[in-house]
Design a protein around this nucleic acid. Structure first.
Lengths: 309, 309
DNA sequence: GTGCTGTAATCAAATTTTTCCATAATAGAT
DNA sequence: ATCTATTATGGAAAAATTTGATTACAGCAC
């Protein structure tokens, strides 16, 4: 006598059993199922073997459930309901959804995108817990390893395993003190090269895009100061004659009273949202992606955001 | 795009999914299942179709679950557990079991068996609720229709659809007042026929067995009084000269001070327990049948019963 | 980059399971 | 006792699962 394994049983068997129970007849159950009677008989035979009980016995015109059958029928119905629910398309309600989402990005995105994003999410989906980690230079790795759900980055990650969506463009500008000699004139290439610069040097040795602008090739900038991040740099360099080259949106946010000037080169770049296969089909993540996109759209037309209030 | 029906899915699919999840690899899952890798791949493909999600994506050496997969895995585990429990052999613990059992019988059994049975069951299985109904003459019908779980009856029900078990034998005796003229002598056939009788007439026109004793054929008993039941008959007939013919065990129980005399015929009969296919395999009912048998055994040797206390 | 390695996906063939049709057995009902 | 409605059984047909061989793919080492 071989030991019975639940694996061989299917939900169809359970459904059949339930129908026999409800109809009190194999024939009726067969019609209901669109099968013919021997098929139902065969299925019942399997279940009898599995459960070691006749389950139904002939009685009048039809069959009557045994004591065991009565006993297990609630459990069977529970299993059937469970399976139907499993097949329900994932439903996601922002207001009630509880889940964790991890985003990887760097200083720029933390400064430019994240504040608005956090505002928006905690308003629309208060039970989503967000975690932000630093990308440094390995954002794509983090994403591929599942260490984060999303990556916000201007770097082009052209792995085909990754999905991406452009969010907005930005470009580098120069930020100088209003009392700087260059403050009243256009900055030419020679002015720029001659000036003293503040350079933000990132972990992992990443170099800002503007350094690869064709106009600057073959030159050596006069770096007077290096800082590891833009945070709090204003007070650090107040009154100095340093030139800081940084993305325009960042300049607007943290430039304070300093003057924004056109640099002697053009270096546009695009900020992208990246995600991977693991979250691609998830309704929750789909919604979250839309929120990021919407937040970025509002950056370009801020008044739009208030309408939704 | 056809709508998906849970019926096509089996528990094996769920088990496979769970194993892939645990192992992070189709190959490993296949080995665990004793199948080969394309089989697992095929099963996964089915589930992907059903759940409309990749469930697992290639990642490093193996696969990583998607967000949806993480989400549904607890539910899948619940379903697997539910199914395993369903296949567990029915377990029955008298002390904790809650169930209803209906027994059909008549006055005789209510008087002779039921008191001890109720005592025993409420001691061993306090949560079994017993219901007693009257058999009248249709006990076998009640049983076949599932109106009761057990029938206690001396009548031979030789339907092959019914199971039966002999419990004990009994025979008819005469009960007379101690001051009756016959009280000091053996009752002969002529004495019996000449005497005035109390007859219990049952519903449905059922006639007691002793009336079909060969010794009484062709005779007419002198019936002086008919009662519909033996209950309380003692006070009714106190001091009269009536002869009452009734089963010995009943006579002992309700005869009070009256005298038990050998009748001028022999009429043994057997009391049986009957049940049907519906309850035959049920552990609870099996146990209950044993209790009935035990109670009846103790009727013949009452001191045995006390030892168990 | 290029090849190497371990893994998942795909394909056609073999196998097993399920379904079907016809028919026998069975239990109530007339 | 016969009739009728129903379940069980047996063999053939259909469908599904499983297999082995192969291809495609992603990560890793060089």
């Amino acid at each position: 006598m071989e030991k019975f394994d639940y694996s061989t049983l299917s939900f169809k068997s359970l459904k059949t059993l339930k129908l026999i129970y409800e109809q009190g007849s194999l024939t009726a159950a067969a019609i209901e199922l669109g099968q013919n009677q021997p098929t139902v008989s065969y299925t019942l035979e399997q279940m009898r073997e599995a459960l070691q009980d006749p389950l139904f016995v002939r009685s009048g015109r039809g069959v009557a459930p045994t004591s065991r059958c009565h006993q297990i029928m609630p459990e069977i119905e529970k299993l059937i309901r469970g399976m139907s629910e499993l097949l329900q398309p994932e439903n996601f309600e922002p207001v009630s959804a509880r889940l964790d989402i991890t985003l990887s990005c760097n200083q720029y995105e933390l400064q430019v995108i994240v504040p608005n994003l956090v505002q928006r999410i905690s308003r629309l989906a208060p039970h989503i817990r967000m975690t932000f980690i630093q990308s440094h230079v390995s954002g794509h790795q983090q994403l591929q390893r599942g260490q984060c759900d999303f990556l916000l980055s201007p770097v082009i990650h052209d792995y085909e395993a990754l999905y991406q969506r452009a969010l907005f463009q930005d470009r580098y500008v120069c930020l100088i003190s209003t009392v700087h000699p260059l403050a009243r004139q256009q900055i030419g290439r020679d002015d720029y090269i001659a000036a003293k610069h503040l350079e933000i040097h990132y972990e992992g040795g990443w170099k800002p895009f503007y350094l690869s602008a064709p106009e600057l090739q073959g030159t050596n900038l006069n770096i007077a100061l290096r800082l590891p991040s833009v945070s709090n740099f204003l007070s650090t360099i107040a009154g100095t004659e340093l030139v800081i080259t940084l993305p325009e949106r960042l300049a607007h946010q943290i430039g304070g009273a300093m003057q924004i000037k056109e640099p002697p080169f053009s270096s546009r770049f695009e900020l992208c949202l990246y995600w991977n296969k693991m979250t691609h089909h998830s309704k929750a993540h789909q919604w979250f992606r839309e929120q990021i996109i919407e937040v970025c759209r509002e950056l370009d037309s801020p008044e739009q955001g208030l309408r939704g209030k």
